[in-house]
Simulated scan of single mutants.
Amino acid sequence: MHRWTDLSQVPTGFGPSVVTLGNFDGVHRGHRSVLTRMVADARAVGAQAVAVTFSPHPAQVHHPDTAPPLLTGVDDRLALLERTGLDAVLLLHYTLDFARQTPEEFVSRYLVDALGARTVVVGRDVRFGWGNAGDLTTMTKLGERYGFTVEVIEDLAAEQEPSDLRGNTPQDERLRHVADPLHRRWSSTWVRELLIEGRVTAAATVLGRPHRVRGVVVHGDARGRELGFPTANLGPEVAGMVPADGVYAGWLRRLAPPAGGGAVADPADVVLPAAISIGTNPTFDGVTQRIEAYALDRTDLDLYGEEVAFEFVAHLRPTLRFDSVDELVVQMREDVDRARDLLADAGGPPTDW
């Protein structure tokens, strides 16, 4: 898949193409269904399948104080888009200057002149151009003017209530009151709501894979090592939305060796079962949120400086304050045992995250 960040990188005369545009945050099941169908349609007519997306998210530029957290960082978003079979992604740097283009300027410059669009695939609620002045009617009229057709993709919803979105707890009932999963469309907003609740198994159902965060391993307080559970602590720059504080079963995936060099990890040690903790370590009166993972039964790993991902499979318990370190250690042993059983039942990590 070609990855372009500027029009100068698009080959002259590129096209014809089938183009869609969007933020594709999380590249969830709804996104993938649309994109894979678009790719098939492009193949059938001998066209290139292209997605136009943006970084940062427009909401982060226009409303930075209220913009929602992003489910995935740019690297993961591009990797997930590539797996849909797209021929190219044009990742545009979104700024206020960029946003000042009229709808026609955007369409003519990017979709027509650069990408040779013959079909533009959009949702019914598409908005583009300065002040979001462009909508579906605008896109259709521009298509008539510039010689492309517009295909409207309707929202995709769960055909039946996924088993892991059912439950009888108050939070389950609250979420069902907000939106019945029987009729709710797959969406990034839905995933965010589930992650805020710590419901990572349900979030994985909407995403079609475990949710992940990624970052570089840094030195922590070394308390885990002192207690017999050495953890990999993520630094402050974390890509991906962090779920609610708590303890989770999941996978620790090694993405790259330390920046300063070093050997690539042994293939057997690339994806490791883990217990993941998010919280402030209240037993030790901590105040800063930590995101850390203990690779089950491993005390020999040196991950400092490596880029890793934590992939969330199941919520084990909320963050708790214990009256003593001994009580904490007993609970940590129970967490590890539960994580081991849950991950064994999961049948191993996803081979194609």
Rank of each mutant, 00 (worst) to 15 (best):
H31D: 06
A256Q: 13
T149A: 14
A244T: 02
V200M: 03
V329Q: 06
D341Q: 15
D302H: 13
V308A: 08
D266W: 01
G286Q: 06
T169C: 05
A249E: 09
G261D: 07
G30M: 05
L70I: 12
R118P: 00
T20R: 03
R176S: 14
V329L: 02
L175S: 09
T140Y: 02
S55G: 13
L78P: 00
R109C: 13
H2S: 15
R43S: 00
H177S: 07
T137Y: 03
V200G: 09
V150D: 04
E307S: 07
L81R: 10
F322T: 00
T119D: 06
H219F: 05
Y94C: 11
E226T: 07
P282A: 13
E161H: 11
D125C: 07
A274F: 08
G215K: 06
G22P: 02
V247D: 11
I196P: 00
A157Q: 08
R225T: 13
Y294R: 05
V242I: 15
D297R: 06
T138R: 01
H31S: 04
V216G: 02
L111K: 01
I276A: 07
A265F: 03
V206Q: 13
V271K: 04
D87V: 02
M1W: 07
R317T: 02
L328G: 01
A40Q: 13
I153Y: 14
E334A: 10
L86V: 08
L255E: 15
H62K: 05
A117H: 01
P68I: 11
R166I: 11
E144S: 12
H183P: 02
V325E: 03
H219W: 06
A42H: 00
